[in-house]
Design a protein around this nucleic acid. Sequence first.
DNA 1: GTAAGTACGCACCTAAAGGTTAGTACATGA
DNA 2: TCATGTACTAACCTTTAGGTGCGTACTTAC
Lengths: 137, 137
Amino acid sequence: MNAPDTLTPEPTTLTAQLRRGNLFAEQCPSREVLKHVTSRWGVLVLVALLEGTHRFSDLRRKVGGVSEKMLAQTLQWLEGDGFVLRKSYPVVPPHVEYSLTPLGRDVGLRVQDLADWIELNLSSILQARGEPDRTAP
Amino acid sequence: MNAPDTLTPEPTTLTAQLRRGNLFAEQCPSREVLKHVTSRWGVLVLVALLEGTHRFSDLRRKVGGVSEKMLAQTLQWLEGDGFVLRKSYPVVPPHVEYSLTPLGRDVGLRVQDLADWIELNLSSILQARGEPDRTAP
DNA sequence: GTAAGTACGCACCTAAAGGTTAGTACATGA
DNA sequence: TCATGTACTAACCTTTAGGTGCGTACTTAC
C-alpha cells in the first residue's frame, strides 16, 4: 500500500507535482498555506468573514479569546495568501474593513464545513473520548 | 474581556449551545477537537488513513517530515477523540495497525476536501501572494 | 477633563508544539 | 556478528505560537 520510493506510484511529472502542490512533501509551499488556514485563529476568522465584511474590533469581539496581536497577524497571513481583502479608510479614528476574496470564500466554505461538522458532532466525539457527555440530559 | 454577557445575540439555550458546540466560544471543548484535527500532522494523518489501514512506520514514511514522537502523539490525540482505531498484535517485532473509525472517516473527508482544494489552487494562491509562481512555464 | 473607542506596532515573556537522541526486546538478513 | 526494522517512551532542548502591556493620534460622549 505504501510504495517504496524507488517506484513512482503516480505517473505525474515534477512540474505537475509542483503546480498541484503535495502536502505530503515536506518542503511544499502548500504546507505554509495550510498552516495559516488551519491555525487556531485562521479557522475562526475565515468562518466569521463568511458572514460578511467586518471591522477589526468586530472580529475581535466575535472571535472569543483572540488577542489583538494574533488577530492582526492572522489577518495579515490570510491577506498575504490572497484570502482576505483589507480596505482602510484614512479617517481620523481609524477605519478598516476586512472581507473575503473569491479565493478566500472558497477556502472559507471548506473550513466552515469542517467547523460545522465538529460543532454538530461534538457530543458524539466527547462520548468516544470517554469523557462523560455532560451535555446529555 | 469581550462580548458583554448581558445580551445574548442568538436565542439558543445554554444546553443547546453545549450540545452543539460553539467554536466562537472560548471555553468550548470543540476548540480542543479542532486543534487536534487541524494540527500540523493531524491533517496529514487523517488524509493518509483515508486510503486505508496503515502501520506506524508506513505513516511515518508517508507523511514527510514527521518525527516519531509527533506521529505517536497525533495518533493518540485522534484515537482519544474517537477518530482513529488502534489495533496492536502482541507479536515479537511489534505490529500495530491504525485505521479510521466511521467518525474519523467523516472528519477525514472534510479535511481532505480542504487539503485537496489547497493543493489544486496552490499556484493561484502563490500568485496572489506576490511570490512569483515558480511553477509557471 | 477624562474615559473610551479605533487599528494597530513594538517589546517582552510564557507555554506549548515540535525536534533529537537514546533506549527497549527481540527477529531477520547480510 | 553487526546492522536493521519494529513501535514506541522518556528526557532534554529549541522554536514558535500566542499573550500582555504599552503607546498612538485623534474624536465622541459623559
